[in-house]
Write a protein that binds this DNA or RNA. Structure first.
Lengths: 232, 232
DNA sequence: CGGCATCCGGGAAGATACTG
DNA sequence: CAGTATCTTCCCGGATGCCG
């Protein structure tokens, strides 16, 4: 005999459809919160500040509008993200991580470092600007930057980022390029080709894939600060 | 009119069904590798050494046999896990992480630390022995253990673990309890109640949920070495 | 027992079209 | 621009059965 079948139609945005791991382990709970497809990548795209719905769509090629809507609702429901209305002129919305949401950054770091050793990793695939900036923070090798104190600017699409190397630390932020010692301009892929693919800057400039303005020697040195780990 | 339907029957075990993110970002590739449901928890259960198929099923309540089979195949396909045949007497197989697979540990650590701040986290849910041991390595507070040098044993089900605290570091391994200063025996949930739930050891012993053998003062001190972070 | 093959129901993800 | 509605495809989870 069959038990009564209970059809749940309660749409509770704070739950992943009751498909939880039911496990007290912290990692399991993290997966309950952000383990659904695309969720962590949405957070990655917001690591350098708020974005609008269509910015997110543009920076996450492959995500569909309804899935993005669902992920944003869920991330807001768990308290990792907030949705704000922009001031009157622009009647649009922006999505921004909460302080706790920003704390997901180390997860992106260790995941990236682990996957960089994967034999299947293809670094020539497309790359968002946020991913590239995060990769700098993740792969930075302080020993190779001893005594270096520099401000490196990036112009990618219509965004600008400033990477500051100072006292053996490497920080990145989405901000104006004032005071940059050198500026890289071009698509994220081209910059990644220079830093991670070993492509000479001259070659990239010759084929108009990348522009370097300012301290050229610094640009060259910068490309050597992010060694990739050996493959597993 | 309908287009011709192409039925793909190519079962390529090394791909997640061509549903990849196509993203050069390391974190995205990590999700392509181990982002499927249960994958990371299977690795978690193997962090302290090899296990058999049915051990994994027992320690991952809720996973179904076919999904476990799929995950093991995939983890083997990407090189994170190896499958070995046990010596003749036992005609069974064991699954063991590769050296690269073991390097997933920091991922479990940062995910757990992040999720511990979630207001939705319920620490009273069931817990595997591996999760508990990992939580010790993750939540250990060196400042609270200053000058402490101890070996704490655990007997959980038919497994034993030894946690060594020495020089401000905390390590855990699945091994015999020789030389332990104190031994906790009981289900993982009861030990978690003492360490994370603030339940007094006496109360847990009184209700026969937990047994403590050896240096009792050390047992009490041990339960205070793993403070939980504030909720977000 | 240990593990794989297969079928099925429900539901999440993906693509497209549409609306305010 | 910012989502919603709808439809299809495919993954997940449960059950069963096979085979060594």
């Amino acid at each position: 005999m069959k038990l009564v079948k209970i059809t749940k139609k309660t749409a509770d945005k704070s739950r992943p459809s009751a498909r939880t791991y039911d496990d007290a382990c912290g990692a399991a709970h993290a997966l309950d919160l952000i383990g659904e497809r695309w969720a962590l990548l949405v957070m990655r795209e917001l690591m350098f500040g708020p974005k609008r719905f269509s910015d997110l769509r543009a920076d996450l090629p492959g995500i569909s509008a309804n899935v993005l809507t669902q992920r944003l609702e869920r991330l807001e429901g768990i308290g990792a993200l907030s949705r704000r209305k922009l001031p009157p002129p622009a009647a649009s919305h922006v999505y921004e991580l909460t302080p706790w949401g920003y704390e997901i950054e180390p997860v992106l770091g260790v995941l990236g470092r682990w996957a960089a050793r994967s034999p299947l990793h293809d670094p020539t695939l497309p790359l968002s600007a946020a991913s590239l900036m995060l990769s700098f923070k993740t792969m930075f090798d302080a020993r190779k930057a001893e005594g270096l104190n520099a401000r490196i600017g990036f112009r990618i699409g219509d965004e600008t980022f400033l990477v500051q190397i100072h006292g053996g630390a490497c920080d990145a932020a989405r901000q104006a390029l004032e005071g940059a010692d050198v500026v890289f301009a071009g698509p994220a892929r081209a910059i990644a080709a220079a830093v991670y693919g070993g492509a000479p800057l001259e070659a990239l400039e010759a084929e108009k894939a990348l522009w370097v303005e300012g301290d050229r020697a610094l640009a060259e040195r910068f490309t050597g600060l992010f060694p990739l780990p050996p493959k597993a």
